[in-house]
Design a protein around this nucleic acid. Structure first.
Length: 998
RNA sequence: GGGCGUGUAACUCAGCGGUUAGAGUGCCUCCCUUACAAGGAGGAAGUCGGGGGUUCGAGUCCCUCCACGCCCACCA
């Protein structure tokens, strides 16, 4: 006797149970295995800044679907999890926290202490992220969990930096950074906000040297930068100024003679006066101009605190705002001031200090992307080639373009960051004030650094600095430090370590050095390299340039092999108003809210469903009232924490809208969020649960056995045809990363075909002792296939049902039964014979469905009693082919079914609705119950519609161009259609006559 | 400014040159029928953003306009 399942699927219980089960069995752990082809994915490591959001839920669900599917297909599937230290983001989160709690800045704490605090934070959030991933069902190999700052990754970073440094790909250069004058640090672009601010637009003039009364005028929004002007620039083809090019002007505040130059990129004749002052050290465009015209020079006028430095002469020490006034005043005195206009100017503000950013020139480390003339490959070109020659393929293809366009600029990559949280740059430097000393030290290096040491040097001529990079912390590091060399304070850009992720996680460069061995779970590159290159990278489009391109770059640089052959870019989850989700907007949704309310399987199904080819997808959410459970749709004003309380329209009690609230409020609980987009998945899981429940209740006396297709009843043949078709389609969809199709195909087959039709039809057979064994085998066999197909997307419900089924029917399957695996996770991905797919059977079945639907329609329209309903049903059933005798119990007990035949019909199931002949007769015989007038009107309209479509089709066929131009099968299709419509019209007209005669 | 993408039912989305444009949710009617009310049966609901064009044939391809989203650049 089968165990009876509870009435509804309990997602929570299943999740707990199977997570433990899977892990105990070690299904997700992978070891190199020469007998199996590897299928590898590395997770895009989530930042340890906080909790996972819906974007992660989407990203990880899709990866898990692929991994679980490939595992079933027999691949050696490995999914490597991990997290990213996310330099700036994490450091600033912790700095803010420390300041909020202790009123201490990072300077108060010091480097070591701050870094310790961040490690504590990291441990906490990493654990939380891993827990969340596990709860989403991610089948990662947890024993291989990596962190971009752990010893294994650190070693890869150090090695890569060293190699690039040694080969001259890494160099020291100048760069304008966003300088925060209050925090006295540089900040990344994404740590700044640009706001329109009221400002001025000043116009001044400089007098041309040697030509009294000849002036050249220009405009600026930042007059104080005149102190750092090193040129005045016009467009080379601008007739107004052509004659002045090559002459000089005297910068009045500093007395410097500066040239008038021509630069077609910087100067735009149509803007302002057509002439522009050039301040290379304090403006990105001017800086670029200087790079094109290095002889004009570059002068930094700012101290790190935002005051003017000695280059500003008499203005030295003034704050930049005061300097602005003073400089302007001076121009007025000299009669060189023209005017000032009010103007809204975009002002960059530091996110953290909320003070204006100053562009400031500083020394930074760069990776050179351009082509080289020494025979070594140019990194950008090399990386581009991998995509153009198809070694790396993008899905959808169009994203290759962002990758190529961006790399095509071959802009150098600034890799140093003035932060404390990250991989500290392993370069020891010393600057000298005298060239002689510099040259001497340079020669003496051979003595300082012993032969055979893994060290590389660079000599920076402009600052008389020697840079020494070390491959590891060798013994002589102390000697260096004793001789005045200091390790750089800077750390590497986070993307530098993420760029190595596909090979650093596998233990490259191996074998492990002592510091890496300290990590007991360290991978072994010698063996694990067989997982490289990985199979597919699953990520979103925002980081194609920042991350994807750089992984390809370092993969090629370090290993001369691409890191992955496919890049699948999935859509973004937007809020209900079409905007991207972000912390600052406060419109994010917590996946745990969704899991809690709908179950993990439902969340995963929902994620798969929205992963369509082209579109970003909106996720409108509701606040679920914490008091009564009422769903209150989220409005835009609820976000950004603008609405602090909401009253439930149902129970009138107050709560806070869901969102990232900094503190709890016992008076006003925060609502969890829900979204009806996950109901489909929840219902689907429950549907499968109940289909299995039904089967288990009808499995008494089950015996396994092979089936022969030709001996099966039509509905079985139909079901197997649909199963084989669906299985093929799902496999193809997975191969092409069409996750939405996967979800839809599964849903349609299981619900609309297996449950709605087949199970209903099987009920009669299950009561019939003779027919019962076969029906049981087919049901069990098909359900077996369904669970396998569903497992990658909805593993928890699949596993629950798999085990339930194993209890009574552990031997099952089609066409021949086999012993089921102990878990659906490791079951084989199904394949079925092509020969099962039969258009003829499907068409016959469709005809039957049409008839049944018509009867139902009539029944519904006229609320007839049971006796009459039976009459209609009988009448209908009599018209159905004998091989559908299973219908007996489906539409009503059957009496005297004759060998009536209904040939194949071109009608498809979805075209039901038109009333066809046989059952029409039946209900016409119920004349007393029918509203004849209404029915006639209805028919008339239907006939008119048909006529119209008939005419259209006929017109098409009488068009010579169509007959000649369209493909023959299309023409034939149209001819069939005409015949079909004519038949339908004839039937309806007959119906009409019948009706009129009543 | 450049690039990419999107406008299809009340909402969220499929549909990728060829029958009468589909699904889920929501809505309306009936049904607690021993798998499932998280269910069953049926129904209403769309000049496929506007305008041109190509084609025998256009949600589907081209042009253009209008809205929206994302990325990159720029705003002396």
């Amino acid at each position: 006797m089968a165990t009876e399942l509870p009435k509804a699927y309990d997602a929570k219980a299943a999740q707990e149970k199977w997570l433990t089960f899977w892990e105990e069995r070690g299904y997700f752990h992978s070891n190199p295995d020469p007998a199996k082809k590897p299928f590898t994915i590395v997770i895009p490591p989530p930042n340890v800044t906080g909790a996972l959001h819906m974007g992660h839920a989407l990203n990880n669900t899709l990866q898990d679907v692929l991994i679980r599917w490939r595992r079933m297909q027999g691949f050696n599937a490995l999914w490597i999890p991990g997290t990213d230290h996310a330099g700036i983001a994490t450091q600033s989160v912790v700095e803010r926290l420390v300041f909020a709690q202790e009123k201490k800045t990072r300077r108060d704490l010091g480097r070591e202490e701050l870094v310790n605090r961040i490690w504590e934070w990291k441990d906490k959030y990493e654990a939380r992220i891993i827990t969340q991933l596990r709860e989403m069902g991610a089948s990662c190999d947890w024993r291989r969990t990596r962190f971009t700052l752990d010893p294994v990754c650190a070693r890869a970073v150090r090695e890569t930096f060293f190699r690039m440094f040694k080969d001259g790909y890494i160099y020291r250069g100048k760069r304008l950074v966003n300088w925060d004058t209050q925090l006295q640090t540089s900040v990344a672009d994404d740590e700044t906000d640009t706001v329109d601010t009221k400002g001025g637009f000043w116009t001044f003039k400089y007098e041309v040297d040697g030509e009294p009364d000849t002036f050249i005028s220009f405009s600026t929004t930042r007059p104080e930068t005149m102190l750092g002007d090193t040129a005045v620039c016009v467009h080379p083809s601008d007739e107004r100024y052509k004659h002045l090019i090559g002459k000089t002007v005297t910068q009045p505040h500093t007395g410097r003679k500066i040239p008038i130059i021509a630069d077609g990129i910087l100067a735009d004749p149509k803007l302002g006066t057509g002439c522009v002052k050039v301040t290379p050290a304090h403006d990105p465009n001017d800086y670029a101009c200087w790079q094109r015209h290095p002889k004009i020079g570059i002068i930094n006028i700012l101290n790190p605190d935002g005051t003017i430095n000695e280059a500003g002469g008499e203005y030295k020490g003034l704050d930049r705002a005061k300097a602005r006034d003073a400089v302007t005043e001076k121009m007025k005195e000299l009669g060189l001031y023209i005017d000032r206009a009010d103007r809204d100017i975009p002002l960059k503000i530091s996110d953290r200090s909320k003070t204006p950013i100053e562009p400031l020139l500083s020394d930074q480390w760069f990776v050179k992307m351009a082509d080289r003339d020494d025979g070594k490959p140019g990194l950008a070109q090399m990386t581009m080639d991998a995509a153009t020659d198809g070694r790396v393929k993008f899905f959808p293809e169009r994203y290759a373009r962002s990758y190529l366009d961006w790399l095509g600029e071959k802009r150098d990559w600034c890799i140093s960051r003035q932060l404390w949280w990250g991989h500290r740059i392993a370069v020891w430097s010393q600057s000298f004030t005298e060239r002689l000393v510099f040259n001497f030290q340079r020669k003496a290096l051979a003595i300082l650094v012993p032969a055979g040491a893994d060290a590389a040097y660079q000599f920076q001529e402009d600052t008389l600095t020697i840079h020494i990079a070390l491959r590891a912390d060798d013994k002589f590091k102390a000697d260096l430090e004793n001789n005045g060399y200091r390790q750089s304070d800077d750390v590497l850009d986070t993307w530098f370590s993420s760029a190595l992720w596909p090979h650093s996680t596998l233990g490259w460069p191996g074998p492990a050095l002592p510091e890496a061995r300290a990590d007991r779970t360290a991978p072994d590159w010698d063996k694990d390299r067989s997982y490289y290159p990985t199979s597919v990278l699953v990520t979103n489009r925002d980081i194609i340039t920042l991350w994807v391109a750089r992984m390809v770059l370092t993969g090629l640089f370090n290993l001369n092999r691409i890191p992955f052959s496919h890049v699948y870019i999935h859509p973004k989850v937007m809020d209900g108003f079409g905007e991207g989700m972000s912390k600052s907007k406060g419109n994010g949704v917590d996946p745990l809210d969704i899991i809690d309310r709908y179950g993990t399987d439902a969340m995963r199904y929902g994620m798969a469903k929205l992963a369509t080819e082209t579109q970003d997808s909106r996720l409108p959410v509701s606040n679920v009232c914490p008091h009564c459970g009422k769903e209150v749709p989220v409005k835009q004003e609820h976000m950004y924490m603008r609405t602090k309380k909401l009253a439930c329209p149902e129970c009138k009690k107050e709560f806070r809208p869901g969102g990232p609230w900094p503190t709890d409020d016992p008076e006003r609980p925060t609502a969890k969020q829900g979204s009806d987009r996950f109901e489909e998945g929840r219902n689907f899981a429950n549907k499968m649960w109940n289909a299995t429940r039904f089967l288990l209740m009808n499995l008494d006396g089950y015996t396994p056995g092979a089936i022969k297709l030709e001996e099966l009843p039509t509905e079985d043949k139909w079901l197997l045809s649909r199963l084989a078709t669906t299985t093929q389609a799902v496999t193809v969809a997975l191969e092409g990363y069409h996750f939405s199709d996967v979800a839809r195909l599964l849903y349609d087959f299981v619900w609309s075909e297996f449950c709605d039709w087949y199970i209903e039809m099987s009920k009669g057979r299950l009561k019939d002792a003779a027919a019962r064994p076969l029906a049981q085998r087919v049901l069990a066999g098909v359900l077996d296939g369904i669970l396998r197909l569903v497992q990658p997307v909805m593993p928890f419900v699949a596993e629950s049902l798999w085990h339930a089924l194993n209890e009574t029917a552990s031997e099952r399957g089609l066409p021949s039964p086999t012993k089921a695996e102990e878990s659906v996770v490791i079951a084989k991905w199904p394949t079925y014979p092509d020969a099962w797919i039969s258009a003829e059977v499907e068409s016959r079945f469709a005809r039957m469905q049409d008839l049944v639907k018509s009867v139902r329609e009539v029944r519904n329209r006229y609320q007839v009693d049971d006796k009459t309903r039976l009459d209609v049903s009988v009448k209908c059933a009599e018209t159905v082919a004998a091989d559908f005798n299973a219908l007996a119990t489906f539409i009503g007990p059957l009496a005297g079914i004759a060998n009536l035949t209904a040939g194949p019909s071109a009608t498809k199931p979805k075209q039901a609705g038109g009333i066809v002949r046989p059952e029409f007769e039946a209900y016409v015989s119920l004349a007393g119950l029918i509203d004849v007038t209404a029915e006639i009107a209805r028919l008339q309209k239907q006939i008119a519609d048909k006529r119209k479509s008939l005419e259209g089709t006929k017109a098409k066929l009488s068009n010579e161009k169509f007959v000649a131009g369209a493909p023959p099968e299309v023409v034939q299709q149209q001819r069939d259609l005409v015949a079909d419509i004519e038949k339908q019209i004839a039937a309806m007209e007959e119906n009409m006559k019948d009706l009129q005669s009543t």
